[in-house]
Design a protein around this nucleic acid. Sequence first.
DNA 1: AGCCTTTGACCAGCG
DNA 2: TCGCTGGTCAAAGGC
Length: 266
Amino acid sequence: MENSYLDQEAAIREVDRGCDIFKQLQVLLQLKSRKGEEVVHIQELAEPLFREGLHALNYALCIMRSGASQVGAKSETAVLDSMVSSDTNKIIENERGKRRRIGENSWTTDTTMPYDDGHQWRKYGDKKISGTNFSRGYFRCTYNKEQGCQAKKVVQQTSSNDRRLFKVKYINMHTCHFHETISPSSSLQPSPFCFIEQDCGVNKMQHLQESKPSGPQLLNQGSCLNDATLTETFPNTSLVERNCEWDWDPLLRSLLGFDSDDFPLI
DNA sequence: AGCCTTTGACCAGCG
DNA sequence: TCGCTGGTCAAAGGC
């Protein structure tokens, strides 16, 4: 009962945060109409902001879904039902207990950025699926061995049109410590998203290396990069920048033309 | 050295 | 029973 209450509070907190983020996004978009020359900067800032907003709402949804049976939260999920759908699966276990997982706690979501959800994943399989032009990637939490985290996800590209679309199935909630550290419940905690445009389907590490910048960048630790890797890849990037521990107000202030001296814009 | 992805093989469910 | 298919393992190689 106590946990249900805490879950509900956490979910509400995430929804609140999502609202705040979208309000900031609105401010950014209003700036765009007033300062045409800043369009590029605003676009670069708005995208991760939008992602983070979505992440906050998705995270809230995860909390609600995982505790739905106790909390009885239904109305909230309706908000995002057009974006996310859950599965009720049967559980099939084989005698060796190592494969044929068809059930477990799972839900699916359609996204254009399947590799950028704030968690660290290790790919353990890839399968060409009949009837589609795309293969399906199987991922499990990096901390599967270390911490016994049972979270998995299956990424299936469903569209290759101008805007690629992926269906991502998540299986089991994260129980690893990393999950807690990236919990967006605090604005001071690292954002799970990266400022670098993700080329979906391309190894993120490789992509980052190919796009190694020359100057300071607004980055965070991302979903698959550790601090050491980033230090090596982006030697001129400070830890604070990498963790996205900035306040958006200075950003907006710099866009408005003041206090821009100590904040490196892209 | 340790982590990752890739990829072929294996195994189980299903029709 | 058999072939197809999806999910997983594990070796190999790369970074």
